[in-house]
Design a protein around this nucleic acid. Structure first.
Lengths: 192, 192
DNA sequence: ATTAAACATGAACAAATGTTCATGTAAATA
DNA sequence: TATTTACATGAACATTTGTTCATGTTTAAT
């Protein structure tokens, strides 16, 4: 099965290129050059530049959603649900940092109607997380905070993490990162 | 002084356009169309598309740096310094959400050598914030946290805020936002 | 009123970019 | 071995895009 390996190499290399330069700025000729073949050959791997972006984005997006749904349909407390959501978010990011980067930086390059679809899915994700937060506030596990604002803030505090994985040369300790971020979100930075 | 007003209208309209579509995807023809004149006329307002981006980015970047430097050179405690940095960050974001959006989303479109310069400045900002955090940890005001990781997490938790200002139709209460975010960063979301 | 500056147009261009096509070679399968 | 499938090339294309130029028109300063 060398065919799969070759396509996977194409996808991985291209993903990195796109991350460095941005989707719009990454030319099919850039991609071809990096892979040492001619432009036309790119079309033996993809249908179109747009389809490539869509494949990347919806694939990683799906993984996030599946992980979230698994946790939501459990019977854990809001606090434990949140803890697990954070953990799973961090794990996926660690496993696929370049795709996560794309998710954050390049979704705007989607064309309609896929762009709307994407935005809607992302809002779903946010809403589900928000529901957990709201539940936790209602049950008195979390402070009486602004749930919407906090949902976005919380997500934002996780969303940068792909950089760490991409830029860091040496492998980083996922357990430690998870602890640090969970502590930050649950308890803040003040002593006591 | 209608000249100033006209150029300002150009800059504001263009800024919004770029925010919606992204810098690379925003054509000079898009801009001209939105302003109801021809493409060539754009060059009565700018030197080049690149120079336009640079102007936006370095101008808002400077404002962030000036505010930070003012606070750093004060004699407040680390905790109070941090509180004020957060407050000033939020204020600038509230005042110039579109430029902040550009700062977050479109700096990658800078060309060398300006791009490197930008990255360096941003790192300066992060390092100065990190120093405050470190000082706070050393003095026992903050928990014994991973300073570097927390610096990035903290910044990320502020960096999304421009969306709130851009998307929200009704004006939002800056005092309340400042309180929510400060509480989140200082104390987290758990009760107690 | 005259001059100068600001704002505007239309035409043109060179470069870049996504995509197609006809064709060829290497590799896997039957 | 014969044949299909995967991988590759070179040439060409229609569009798009940033930019320039020569030339107007409107507005403000002298």
């Amino acid at each position: 099965m060398k065919g799969i390996t070759k396509k996977e190499k194409f996808l991985a290399t291209t993903l990195q290129l796109i991350h460095e330069k941005g989707f719009k700025a990454t030319t099919l000729r850039d991609i071809a050059q990096k892979l040492n073949f001619e432009v036309a050959n790119v079309y033996n791997y993809i249908d179109s530049k747009q389809a490539l972006l869509e494949a990347y984005l919806f694939d990683i997006s799906d993984e996030f959603h599946r992980a979230q749904d698994r946790i939501i349909s459990s019977t854990y407390s809001p606090r434990e649900k949140l803890r697990r959501m954070i953990a799973s978010y961090i794990q996926i990011t660690a496993k696929r940092p370049y795709e996560q980067a794309l998710l954050v930086n390049d979704w705007r390059n989607l064309k309609e109607p896929r762009r709307q679809e994407f935005v809607k899915r992302r809002k779903d994700y946010e809403d589900k997380l928000m529901a957990v937060l709201q539940e936790g506030v209602d049950q008195g596990q979390f402070r009486a905070l602004d749930v919407e604002l906090t949902t976005h803030t919380l997500l934002a505090s996780l969303r940068w993490l792909y950089k760490k994985h991409i830029e860091e040369a040496k492998a980083i300790n996922p357990v430690e990162i998870e602890k640090q971020l969970t502590d930050f979100i649950f308890s803040g930075i003040l002593k006591n």
